[in-house]
Amino acid sequence: MRSFFNLFLAGIWVASVVQAKAADAPRRIDVKRLSKTIEDVVVPLPNEIFGALNKLDSVNWKEFVRTDKGSNFTERPRIALLLGATIADGFIAVQAEDAPSVKEIGQRVVNLAKGIGVGNSIVPHAKAITEAADRRDWNGVRQELDRTQNSVQQAMNEVHDEKLSQLVSLGGWLRGTQVLTSVVDRHFSADGAELLHQPDLLEYFQRKLANMPEFNVPLLGQIRNSLVEVKPLIEAQSPISAASVKKIHQITSRLDERIVTRTP
């Protein structure tokens, strides 16, 4: 009888906790009133999108692996963009479970980071990437790529190079979007196209780019103009069409080409 009573009390306690939890959170809030207290978005990692894409369709990641060393730049904004795109290439090589490419890309990331003076911060991560790739510990490689990007950006922020740090994120996002649109363009599905619904993120990059007048790099102007083209295609309230996916793929491919090659 006593144990039944204890069980009964425990049941009441659990129910009250659950109810308190439900009562704590309002079912609806007015998001317009949040504007003064909103923190900036954290830019998703390319593999956050690739993971979602993988669940929709089987993707032949090997065809997207890119290991060519690309051009060497001296302009720091261009190095930052290429660094972001190269880290995204690392995530693609992990999706493809291609250990030699992962290791090559790891080295390339170190060289690019050295080019903007933050190489030292990521040498341990590059070593960890190589070791994890040798063990075929793909989750470990993903974690180290995230740490690499984080360390590079923290090192940049510490020397007040926040704008370069934002370009690293932008380079990764553009490369990720190029690959995403390539996959969805080939095997169109509404769910795949929905992954492009990222208007706030696009606005975030537009805001950041607008705040970089000191970088006299034509490529940044091209990216700014291209984002204006992309915006209406992903903002649509209705599902994103196959034609929009194709268009975004053309735009991001053009930009990616300019990020990796020496063009004015």
Binding site: I38, E39, V41, P44, Q149, L195, Q198, D200
Partner: peptide, 26 residues
């Protein structure tokens, strides 16, 4: 996979902070 990036700060009792985040179906 836990992201390396994080948000942080300080708040008084009853204060709230909103973080806008892009999330993906799937």
């Amino acid at each position: 996979q836990v992201r390396e990036d994080y948000w942080g700060g300080d708040l008084g009792v009853g204060e709230k902070k909103a973080v806008r985040q892009q999330l993906f179906k799937g």
